[in-house]
Design a protein around this nucleic acid. Structure first.
Lengths: 199, 199
DNA sequence: TCTTTAATTAACACGGTGTTGAGTGTATCA
DNA sequence: TGATACACTCAACACCGTGTTAATTAAAGA
């Protein structure tokens, strides 16, 4: 086992994935062709087809890896503790960890969530955010019995969170993960004071 | 003037646009080909190229029309009056008008903003929402001097608003434009009460 | 040494692209 | 009524990326 053949396969796959990400980030998924990937990765076009059937399957594979990693990190968040930290103006480490993960995979995420990316991936991320984090929160509201309200509340908050992440990625992570967590807290504070400012 | 030739051109362009929208909604922009458009619209493929150089130019044209219409409707909103209406639990007509416009062009917007749509269009809409509506609001906050905070606050709110619109489009507008305006108010109320619920 | 396996190479049919040149039908105008 | 202007049709063209195939090379392990 662990033969050099398997190592070779892994190495080739890494090559393909790396240059695929770079190409999607630069030109957008729709303009990426198997031919270009092969040229950049210095492999024969036929070799690509030994590992993936499609550029679509490759994208899928990449997305599922990222989603799975994200999911485990989001699951680690305990809403009560998170809000406790918010009130005490303290950073909540599992929250920071998510921004760190995003920072580590900024290239891939920028490619998928960027201007020429895949809206369906954004939707999957929103679903994960929502299922794990928001359901309990939203259900506290009296209007939450209303199916429509829950649905749009969900869309509002998950889109907002993802929007901030996308903005961060676009700015090439000029802020550190800690700063992003702080900014999120500031935003939540601002929103909860909206009434004061507009009266 | 107003010759029958010009009428014919208009009719053909309408045909092309209509079937283009239907195809993008059904299969996603990347899977739409000029060939398919021509087949559906019952025109010769060559005729398409008499009017547009590309499927990309066609998409661009469609987007610019929608953006321009949206912009005029958003400009009609006066933030002060809007928030006055919010506090008085009243509907603000220019706000409702925007949801009506979206409803009227639901097919095209679903195609462009949907799962297989164009993320760059979403970004353009966010910019319009932000430039016209949010700048004055955000600048009221003490932390607004911080460039980064303004930027992310902007991303947060515009993404949230657009997210609700996208959810509405996905549900094939089961809610009326008035209901959507109400739901937006409910959401803002909920957010401003967040502290209460989490204490 | 012989086998296994990843990758290479070149060729193939297929399908969409964008362009061309010749031709059709209809409305406008002299 | 006949000329002409114009939108559109039709068929053909070279071009490019796709996905598949069969034959071949190179390197590792038994």
């Amino acid at each position: 086992m662990a033969s050099i053949h398997e190592d070779m396969v892994q190495k080739t796959k890494m090559q393909i994935q790396h240059h695929f990400i770079a190409l999607v980030e630069a030109e957008g998924f729709s303009h990426v062709s198997v031919k270009k990937i092969a040229e950049r990765a210095n492999i024969n076009r036929g070799t690509f087809y030994l590992h993936y059937t499609d550029k679509y399957e490759l994208m899928d594979h990449l997305q599922q890896e990222l989603l799975h990693e994200l999911q485990t990190r989001i699951t680690a968040i305990l809403p009560k503790e998170a809000f406790l930290a918010l009130h005490q103006q303290q950073l909540y480490p599992p929250f920071v960890a998510i921004f760190q993960f995003i920072s580590e995979h900024a290239n891939a995420l920028r490619a998928i969530l960027g201007d020429q990316g895949d809206p369906s991936f954004a939707k999957k991320i929103k679903r994960i955010f929502g299922e794990i984090l928001l359901e309990r929160l939203i259900s506290l509201h009296p209007a939450a019995k209303d199916e429509a309200f829950r649905m749009y509340m969900h869309a509002f908050l998950t889109s907002a969170i993802l929007g901030v992440i996308q903005e961060w990625l676009e700015n090439c992570e000029e802020q550190t993960a800690e700063e992003m967590a702080k900014i999120h807290f500031q935003i939540l504070n601002f929103i909860s004071q909206l009434r004061t400012f507009t009266q």
